[in-house]
């Protein structure tokens, strides 16, 4: 029987998640006094957007890249 596919079988997934996490860390921001965006320093807002990207990619992988095992798993 074919083994069900899992997120572990998709190496690009880990690369994508690590890349988004890397963007969420504001190494790219300026050292100057930050501009404000939505009442917060802009770098903090952009960090949150990257983190939201990780959430979306993770949810996609859980729902689409993890196939149910057939062994007695009926809901």
């Amino acid at each position: 029987m074919r083994r069900r596919r899992e997120p572990l079988d998709h190496p690009w997934l880990l690369v994508g998640i690590l890349a988004l996490y890397a963007v969420s860390i504001p190494w790219w921001a300026s050292d100057e006094t930050p501009a404000l965006l939505l009442g917060m320093p802009a770098w903090a807002v952009l960090s949150l957007v990257a983190t939201l990207g990780v959430s979306c990619l993770t949810a996609f992988a859980v729902l689409r890249l993890w196939e149910d095992d057939d062994g007695g798993d009926a809901e």
Partner: peptide
């Protein structure tokens, strides 16, 4: 504001589940 990083902390747990929970 650097504590905004905490949002990614608990998310990291779910990310690792992706690879070990199945």
């Amino acid at each position: 504001f650097p504590w905004v990083m905490s949002v990614g902390f608990m998310l990291a747990v779910v990310v690792v589940y992706l690879f070990i929970a199945p």
